[in-house]
């Protein structure tokens, strides 16, 4: 399986292709630069059992360590909350894109538009369109695909990878989140 071609073969991108997330440090660097990050999760976070535990753990750690707000689409809000995730809002996938393209939108909390968006848990076909819509309509926003399938329309995406390899990548990411958090806390204590 080659890593950097669109997962559904015919869903080709265009002239600008997503950069591949080769190590979790890339995500940490993006987070460091971001002023307003956001996570959007679609219904496959629940319906695709292969991905559920991994994605739930990942977004939960993002929330705990970085306090990133999380939005869900479709009908999964209750099930996601049962898994201990606090939601900042529930909107349809298209409604979220519609807001993310609007420079005057103040976000779910009234504190302004987002500049870094993580997306996971959509079918590949719909996800591809969400990335394309954001690339076109919100060009200043960095959009990251967290699923293990290459999405050319994203700004950054994982390559196509097997579940085990992807899980290992996510574990490394979570370790980094924790260690950075610990480091930060130590610094705070030290100060």
């Amino acid at each position: 399986m080659s890593g950097q071609d669109s997962w559904i073969r015919a869903e080709m991108g265009g002239t600008k292709q997503a950069s591949v997330i080769t190590k979790p440090e890339i995500l940490m660097a993006l987070l460091k630069k971001a002023k307003r990050p956001l996570i959007i999760i679609g219904h496959e976070i629940i319906s695709d059992r292969v991905r559920t535990d991994i994605l739930i753990r990942m977004v939960s750690e993002f929330q705990k360590t970085k306090r990133i707000p999380i939005l869900t689409t479709s009908h999964i809000a209750g099930q996601v909350m049962e898994r201990g995730i606090r939601l900042s809002g529930v909107l349809g996938s298209m409604e979220i894109i519609d807001r993310l393209r609007d420079p005057t939108w103040n976000g779910c909390d009234g504190n302004g538009q987002y500049d870094l968006v993580f997306i996971a848990g959509f079918s590949y076909a719909l996800g591809s369109l969400l990335f394309s819509a954001l690339k076109q309509n919100a060009p200043q926003t960095k959009v990251i695909s967290l699923d293990p399938k290459y999405h050319p329309h994203a700004t950054w995406s994982y390559a196509n990878m097997k579940t085990d390899s992807w899980k290992a990548e996510i574990d490394r990411l979570i370790d980094l989140l924790h260690s950075e958090n610990t480091h930060q806390k130590m610094e705070e204590i030290h100060v």
Partner: peptide
């Protein structure tokens, strides 16, 4: 009800000027 456009790809391929890259404005 403002249109939200969701391109399939970045290109227009309709005439012999093209393909034209329409991404990024």
């Amino acid at each position: 009800y403002k249109p939200l456009y969701i391109p399939f790809c970045d290109l227009c391929c309709l005439c012999t000027y093209g393909k034209c890259d329409l991404s990024g404005g």
